[in-house]
Simulated scan of single mutants.
Amino acid sequence: MVLNGTVLEKPTEYDVKTPDYDGLWKNLIETLFKEFMQFFAPDIYEDIDFSKPPDFLKQELYKEIIDEKKGKLIADEIVKVFLKNGEEKWILIHVEVQGSTDENFGERMFRYF
C-alpha cells in the first residue's frame, strides 16, 4: 500500500523549550576539563596536578565571589584544582558564545573581566 499526503505540524502543540546552552557548555567543560585547559590555558595546564581530580564547585555557595548585580553575570564553572607544588587554586571559567548580534556584548565582557 502506498500512502501519499502531507503532514502539517503544529509546533504550538509541542512543549519545545530552548536548549540549555549554558548547561551544555558546563557539561562539556566538566567532561573535557583537562583538554579544555590544555587548549585554552596551556600555561596554567602545565602547573595543574591532574592526578587529583578537579572539584567543580557549586556557584550558589560562593555568593561572595559571584555578585549577581544585573542580568546573568556568573561564571560557567568555578573549579578547585591542586597544582603540582601542592597549592590549591580556584579557576573561574566563563565561555560566551554569541549566535546573534548583541549591542551590549562589549560592556558585558568588560564587566565579566
Rank of each mutant, 00 (worst) to 15 (best):
residue 30 E to C: 11
residue 79 V to S: 03
residue 46 E to N: 03
residue 43 D to A: 05
residue 90 W to I: 08
residue 47 D to R: 08
residue 60 E to D: 07
residue 58 K to F: 09
residue 46 E to A: 03
residue 58 K to Q: 08
residue 23 G to D: 13
residue 81 V to P: 01
residue 40 F to Q: 03
residue 85 N to C: 11
residue 42 P to N: 05
residue 96 E to H: 04
residue 23 G to V: 08
residue 37 M to Y: 11
residue 22 D to W: 00
residue 67 D to F: 04
residue 67 D to E: 11
residue 82 F to Y: 12
residue 69 K to F: 03
residue 19 P to A: 12
residue 6 T to P: 01
residue 84 K to C: 09
residue 72 K to M: 01
residue 75 A to W: 01
residue 29 I to C: 11
residue 16 V to P: 03
residue 82 F to Q: 12
residue 70 K to I: 02
residue 55 D to E: 11
residue 96 E to C: 04
residue 97 V to E: 11
residue 57 L to Y: 01
residue 17 K to S: 12
residue 37 M to L: 15
residue 69 K to S: 09
residue 55 D to T: 00
residue 84 K to Q: 11
residue 74 I to P: 02
residue 8 L to W: 15
residue 14 Y to G: 02
residue 37 M to G: 05
residue 5 G to D: 08
residue 35 E to H: 12
residue 58 K to G: 04
residue 18 T to A: 15
residue 76 D to E: 15
residue 51 S to C: 00
residue 80 K to A: 09
residue 97 V to P: 04
residue 58 K to R: 09
residue 55 D to Q: 02
residue 64 E to Q: 09
residue 22 D to N: 09
residue 81 V to W: 03
residue 5 G to I: 08
residue 16 V to F: 15
residue 40 F to R: 05
residue 33 F to K: 11
residue 28 L to T: 11
residue 84 K to V: 09
residue 34 K to Y: 14
residue 65 I to F: 15
residue 68 E to C: 06
residue 92 L to M: 10
residue 48 I to S: 05
residue 94 H to D: 15
residue 40 F to T: 06
residue 61 L to M: 06
residue 77 E to R: 10
residue 82 F to L: 02
residue 56 F to Q: 05
residue 61 L to P: 01
residue 89 K to C: 12
residue 36 F to N: 06
residue 68 E to A: 09
residue 63 K to T: 10
residue 58 K to E: 14
residue 94 H to T: 13
residue 55 D to I: 02
residue 20 D to Q: 04
residue 15 D to L: 13
residue 68 E to M: 10
residue 61 L to V: 03
residue 38 Q to L: 14
residue 66 I to S: 04
residue 36 F to T: 12
residue 52 K to A: 01
residue 45 Y to D: 06
residue 83 L to F: 08
residue 70 K to H: 05
residue 62 Y to M: 09
residue 95 V to T: 13
residue 9 E to P: 00
residue 80 K to D: 10
residue 37 M to I: 14
residue 40 F to K: 02
residue 28 L to D: 14
